[in-house]
Amino acid sequence: MSIGEMVFSPLGNSFITMLAPAKVIGALLGFWPIAVFFATLIYPKLYAYLKTVPFQIGYGIVAAIVIVMGIILWLLSGRLDQLAKAE
């Protein structure tokens, strides 16, 4: 989790500063650490749940969620690219 935070935090902050309107940039940059905070609250509960179910089922569900979210981001990437070029 720490490695992921070190890799994606600068990318997320850079993306926010690149695309956010000037009026809300501070609020959005403040939202990033709040999102990390909630992720660290959810992770122990998720880990505890994954210990109670068979490996294939638990991690299969996690993999399915990650794949669906990746597809959603991929589908929206064209729009995000347009926003980035417009700035």
Rank of each mutant, 00 (worst) to 15 (best):
M1L: 10
I3Q: 15
I3L: 11
G4R: 06
G4S: 08
G4Y: 03
E5F: 06
M6D: 14
M6L: 15
V7R: 05
V7P: 13
F8A: 07
S9Q: 14
L11K: 06
G12M: 04
G12I: 06
N13Y: 12
S14W: 15
F15D: 08
F15Q: 04
I16E: 06
T17N: 12
T17D: 09
T17Y: 13
T17M: 11
M18F: 14
L19G: 00
L19F: 05
L19P: 00
A20L: 06
A20H: 01
A20I: 01
A20S: 02
P21F: 13
A22H: 10
A22N: 09
A22W: 13
A22Y: 15
I25L: 02
G26A: 00
A27F: 03
L28V: 09
L29H: 05
G30I: 03
W32R: 12
P33T: 09
I34M: 03
I34T: 13
A35R: 13
A35N: 11
A35M: 11
V36R: 14
V36Y: 10
F37P: 11
F37C: 13
F38D: 05
T40F: 12
T40C: 14
T40S: 15
T40L: 12
L41G: 09
I42A: 08
P44G: 03
K45Q: 11
K45A: 15
K45S: 15
L46F: 08
Y47R: 09
A48Y: 10
Y49T: 14
L50F: 08
K51M: 09
T52C: 07
T52L: 11
V53I: 14
P54M: 02
F55N: 13
I57K: 14
G58I: 04
G60P: 02
G60C: 06
G60H: 05
I61W: 02
V62M: 08
V62D: 11
I65L: 06
V66G: 07
V66L: 07
I67W: 01
I67G: 01
I67P: 00
I67A: 00
V68H: 00
V68K: 02
V68W: 00
M69L: 06
M69Y: 12
M69P: 04
G70I: 10
G70D: 07
I71R: 04
I72A: 07
I72Q: 07
L75C: 02
L76P: 00
S77A: 10
S77G: 03
G78C: 07
L80Q: 04
D81F: 10
Q82E: 05
Q82M: 09
L83R: 04
K85T: 14
A86I: 00
E87I: 10
E87Q: 14
E87N: 12
